[in-house]
């Protein structure tokens, strides 16, 4: 009888905890997240021209473009959106050469969006996707390559 009690008690405990920890807990957390912080809970999706163009947290390959900031291709996750400020400044020169956007504008953009890996020191970095969205949003009426991207995002939009 003792063995039976051990089996039934531990099996029931396992099943009850599977329900509490495996179902109720993640569902409650999902409910809180979706109700109170929907932007973060759904992956910080980025919008441009009324279209969803990705997540601010996930880097996008831009095929070594000369008019957008490119991501690193040697990161651990493979989808790191962040690039060092040093790399961003070098890329700004390339973008300036191909689009004529002033270096001062690009430098300002980089510096306004700079963050640090140790909060206030360490590696200085910027999110490449945010920079690209800001540039396209700002120049889609004046520079043709950005207009093409902008209008291509939302074929049903204006």
């Amino acid at each position: 009888m003792k063995g039976g009690k051990l089996i039934s008690g531990t099996l029931r405990l396992a099943l009850v905890l599977a329900l509490i920890c495996g179902v109720i807990y993640p569902v409650v957390v999902t409910g809180i997240g979706q109700a109170l912080f929907p932007f973060q809970a759904n992956g910080e999706m980025a919008q441009l021209n009324n279209a969803t163009v990705g997540s601010y947290l996930i880097g996008q390959s831009t095929n070594n473009s000369h008019y957008l900031f490119n991501v690193r291709n040697d990161s651990a996750s493979g989808v790191d959106p962040d690039i060092t400020v040093t790399s961003a400044m070098a890329q700004a020169q390339v973008i300036h050469n191909s689009t004529n956007i002033s270096l001062a504008y690009l430098d300002g953009l980089i510096h306004n969006n700079t963050r640090y890996s140790m909060f206030f020191f360490g590696t200085a970095y910027v999110d490449s996707l945010s920079l690209n969205i800001l540039i396209i949003d700002h120049f889609h009426n004046s520079i043709a390559v950005y207009g093409k991207i902008y209008n291509g995002l939302n074929t049903t939009g204006s």
Binding site: P26, V27, V29, T30, G33, Q34, Q40, A41, N42, G43, E44, M45, L48, A51, T52, V53, G54, L57, Q60, S61, T62, N63, S65, L68, L129, N132, I133, I136, I149, L153
Partner: peptide, 16 residues
């Protein structure tokens, strides 16, 4: 910023 959703993966068209 850590997501919490049960809504499924979504396919988006990127800038490129």
């Amino acid at each position: 910023g850590v997501p919490q959703s049960l809504g499924g993966y979504s396919l988006v068209k990127t800038l490129s």
